[in-house]
Amino acid sequence: MSMFIGLGQTIHEEIISLRRELHQFPELSHEETRTTTRIKEELTKAGIPYKDGFATHGVLGIIKGAHPGKTIALRADMDALPIVEKNDHDFVSHKKGVMHACGHDAHTAMLVGAGKLLNTQKDKLSGTILLVFQPAEEDAPIGGAQAMMDEGVFKEYVPDEIYAQHVWPDLPVGTFGVRPGAMMGNSDRFEIRITGSSGHASMPHQTTDAIVIAAQMINSLQTIVSRSTDPLQSAVVTVGKITGGSRYNVIADDVVLEGTVRTYKADVKQTVKARLMQIVEQTASMLGGSACCKYHDGYPATRNNADAAALVAKTVQDAYGEDAQPEILPSMGGEDFGRFLEQYKGAYYWLGTAIPSREVQRPLHDPLFDIDERAIPYGVEMLAELAYQASKEESS
């Protein structure tokens, strides 16, 4: 039997107001001072005890039910991105060059809302519900999840399960995306520095052109996916930034390539990583230059526990019907929540936020990204209901 479905509307305006306030005052990773203050103010107002200071700006809200049960953690990330907002609504970012372009403002506000609903019914709740407000999710590969765990966020209350939701512009309002296994990918970064020798553009035979090496290297890197990995296993290698050269008629002696590697499986990741390093070294050597590569292992793949994912699906279907849980494919995007799932059973799911008036939905990290705020009651209810359903099950 549902306890919280339908109650999201009772605090709809309040949570929208909080979301818009957070949107107007976004803060980058490791700088979430104002956001943390507002979270603590809201928890205090609701009578929810908390602990703070985890990974500097992290907050842990604690709701103790009146009956024995499991400990369930709900997590929301709260940092913004270094993006210039291009929306024209009346609550655009007041901080130049910083924007909530990934929905963390909504995540934070919805978890506050879920906490408020849960706390009003704590005499009927089982176990303990933890509200985990995480900083620095966007700071890959460092993040904030591992730092929170290292600093003892779960020292006193160890979660039996942990859940998180993320706004998703590819799904309509009122629907949720979840699946067992991979939801998001391994997210790694690399930086390649190519060294040649400079000279006049009219006398290339006296030089080693780092730009030519870079061009050959970029093409060769694409063969990793097409020829070195199983075509039935997903992998992406992207060079996203090239820096090199000083003048149109001077052959460059230094080029830097920066990019990312996305995979789902650990063995595929290792294959891609090994081939990338090999191609970098041998391509530069073949063309008379040299190169070094710094490979940064980033967030692990976000892999849902099958039982936890099934509970999310059942909770959605019981509350909103089978059509509210369409079949989805995983994303190659990275997510710091994967580090929580390496340590604790749980699941990560998507909340549909598509804006019907837009013919083309703007993706996450886009300057025009926004959400349909009618999704907010669904997100609040789902977090609260999921915690209720999970906590009352017998602890394994």
Rank of each mutant, 00 (worst) to 15 (best):
D160T: 07
Y163D: 00
D209V: 11
D170M: 01
H200G: 04
D160Y: 04
D209C: 09
P180S: 09
E156A: 11
I211M: 07
H205D: 14
P204D: 05
V178G: 03
T207S: 09
V167D: 07
G181N: 11
P180G: 11
G196E: 00
D170S: 14
G181K: 14
S198I: 03
Q206H: 08
I162D: 01
D170F: 08
H200Y: 02
S197M: 14
N186Q: 08
Y157G: 00
S198W: 02
P180T: 00
P180N: 06
M183E: 06
G152C: 15
I194Q: 13
R193N: 15
Q206A: 13
I192N: 10
H166I: 10
T207H: 02
F190A: 01
I194A: 04
W168M: 08
G196V: 05
Y157R: 10
G181A: 06
H200A: 05
D170K: 04
Q206C: 06
G199P: 04
F154P: 02
E191T: 03
S187D: 13
T175Q: 09
G152Y: 07
T175A: 00
Y157N: 09
V158Q: 15
E191R: 13
Q165E: 08
H166Y: 10
G174A: 12
N186M: 07
Q206S: 13
P172V: 13
R179A: 15
Q206P: 00
V173A: 02
V173Y: 05
S187Y: 12
Y163T: 03
V167A: 15
A210V: 14
M183R: 01
V212T: 10
I194E: 03
S202I: 09
D209E: 05
S187H: 09
V212Q: 11
D188C: 10
H200K: 07
I211N: 13
M183L: 15
D170L: 15
R179N: 08
E161Y: 00
L171I: 05
V173F: 01
Y163M: 13
S187Q: 14
S197A: 13
W168E: 06
V158L: 13
I162Y: 01
N186E: 11
G185S: 06
V173S: 05
V158D: 11
D160N: 09
A201N: 00
P159V: 02
L171H: 01
I211T: 07
W168A: 02
T175L: 07
A210M: 00
H205I: 02
G196Q: 01
S197Q: 15
H200F: 00
E156F: 04
